[in-house]
Nucleic acid binder design. Structure first.
Lengths: 183, 183
DNA sequence: GTCTATACGGGGATAGAC
DNA sequence: GTCTATCCCCGTATAGAC
């Protein structure tokens, strides 16, 4: 793994575990096993570090959209399943970046907003009804919110069973959208 | 208004507008129109300021539960309507405290978790089905997440219409819970 | 009850050695 | 490509004046 990636991993990890205040250059460098000077070679400023994280999130989200579009279970089920915390690269990058968005970081705020819009559009394409799509999107947002609160320490939906139950509820919403389309 | 309340208002406002990093003692004091020394008379440390915010949130949430229980429209509709950002005291205190929870502040994390559990219990009492209740809770969480991302700059559900549409979708979930109870 | 002055540590960033 | 040394600013907190 490149040193850059190791540094971004460390930055993410600290943001998730301890929050923005703890995510200092020194802490990030130490966690990645380099010195502050070493970090500043790869990322000449803190803004550069943020930009690196934003770029990583953007790439991961684009890959995820492809998988979501092609998911055999359907985009909606795929979206809900992957919104529950699993510790995936996308989970981590998104929750970490959300924290920066809350610090009024414009780049972070933009990318998080854009990703949400793209998800919404994909769901609308699949099920047709905008109000129901928004409700489904909000359920996923709720899962991310819960992950963010704990830094992804545990799933909101503990165990496979509650996720299955939630998916079943969401299936009903998809059916409802189908019924509305038919009428 | 007491000086204490003015200081807590200022703390909240900075947390919402600019995030935890900007919420320094000096910034809070300035926004409340007192000096740093003045602030430290009322709240002898930053931890005391956090504790003050947590206590305020707890009180507001307790009042809100009473209103939710007695809401003529039902607890679920009340919950969804008030989860959309309106700039209420509870909105502000909850989103501000959520940010502290993400900084691994134990007191903040506990109170936010507890409030969520109480909401869930209230909804379960009213509609019976736990999985559906959890889905409804997550929709509310999603609304809070969106408010938190922007510091409550705007509603996720712009305009009265999209809120009404969402409430309609949620009504279907409540109906579904009723149907499950009947069977 | 609120202010100023001051101490101290930590965070971001630069220069330059290796 | 990574390290140490150093600078300056800012955030927290204490002491004490008014």
């Amino acid at each position: 793994m490149s040193a850059r990636d190791a540094l971004l991993d460390a930055y993410e990890a600290i943001l998730l575990d301890d929050g923005v205040r703890a995510a200092t250059l020194e802490a990030v460098a130490a966690r990645a096993g380099v010195s502050k000077g070493g970090l500043l070679y790869h990322f000449p400023s803190k803004d550069a570090l943020v930009a690196g994280l934003v770029a990583r999130l953007e790439a991961l989200a684009a890959e995820d959209r492809d998988r979501m579009r092609q998911a055999p279970e359907g985009a909606v089920r795929y979206y809900i399943r992957t919104s529950n915390w699993s510790g995936s690269s996308l989970d981590r990058a998104l929750v970490a970046t959300s924290q920066l968005a809350q610090e009024s970081d414009v780049a972070a705020r933009d990318v998080v907003a854009r990703i949400g819009q793209e998800w919404l559009e994909l769901i609308v394409e699949q099920i047709g009804d905008r109000a129901i799509s928004r409700a489904i999107l909000l359920i996923g947002d709720g899962l991310y919110y819960n992950a963010a609160l704990t830094g992804g320490t545990y799933n909101t939906l503990t165990g496979e069973q509650s996720l299955e139950e939630l998916l079943e509820v969401v299936d009903h919403l998809v059916e409802l959208a189908g019924a509305r389309r038919a009428s």
